[in-house]
Computed example of a mutant assay.
Amino acid sequence: MGLKNEFAAELAEARLAEWQRANYGDWRAMLDDKEVRTVVGADGTRYCMVSYALDDGDGRIRMSVAVDHGTWSAFVPLVRDEIMNPDGTFVE
């Protein structure tokens, strides 16, 4: 069975929404950290969610979330990200 993108996307978007409430300094503090969570989606499926921050250049920070439910989806997880500028605004 393939990855249920709508449920995986909900989980990724919810995690990014948590980060959007943080300020630039908090984002910088998360650089090079990785968080792995097992979460249950609205469909009852257990998903693996990996969240991490990367330096995107020129002071920007990219927060990425990758979601899969194991098996083949681990090779091509659903990925969502946000980029914050040093002034705290987000790249559109």
Rank of each mutant, 00 (worst) to 15 (best):
S73F: 01
M30D: 11
V39N: 00
T71D: 12
D58R: 14
N5C: 05
T38H: 15
Y52M: 12
Y52G: 08
E13M: 04
L54I: 11
E6I: 11
R21W: 07
W27K: 01
Y24T: 01
G41Y: 06
S64F: 13
R21D: 03
V50F: 07
V76W: 13
R80Q: 06
T89N: 01
R80E: 04
E6G: 03
P77D: 00
W72F: 02
G41M: 05
G59K: 03
G41A: 03
W27L: 04
T38C: 14
D26T: 10
L31T: 00
D32E: 04
R37G: 09
D26E: 12
V50H: 03
R37P: 00
L3V: 13
S64H: 12
A12P: 11
A22I: 05
A74K: 13
R62Q: 13
K34D: 00
D32M: 01
R62E: 06
D58C: 11
E18L: 12
T45C: 11
D43R: 08
R15A: 13
L3R: 03
L31Q: 00
L11N: 11
D68A: 10
R46M: 14
F90W: 15
I83P: 00
Q20K: 14
E10I: 03
S51R: 12
M1N: 07
A17W: 06
V40L: 10
A12T: 09
Q20N: 09
V65M: 10
M84H: 03
E13H: 07
A29M: 03
I61R: 04
P86F: 14
V79S: 03
P77L: 01
V40T: 15
G70L: 06
K34S: 05
T89E: 00
G41I: 04
M1Q: 06
R80N: 05
V67A: 04
D56C: 08
R62A: 11
T45M: 12
E35V: 15
G59D: 05
V67L: 01
E35R: 15
T38M: 13
A22M: 10
G2Q: 04
G25R: 02
L78M: 08
A14G: 05
D81F: 15
G2M: 02
V50I: 11
Q20F: 08
A42C: 10
M63L: 10
T45W: 10
V76M: 10
V39K: 02
A17D: 15
M63H: 08
P77V: 00
M1K: 06
L54D: 06
G88F: 06
S73A: 00
L78N: 07
H69K: 07
N85P: 02
R15L: 12
D55A: 09
D58I: 12
K4E: 10
V79E: 04
A22H: 12
N85G: 00
R15C: 12
H69Q: 04
N85K: 09
Y47A: 05
F75L: 07
D81Y: 15
G88N: 03
N5Y: 07
G57V: 09
E18M: 14
G59A: 02
E10H: 02
E18D: 15
V91R: 14
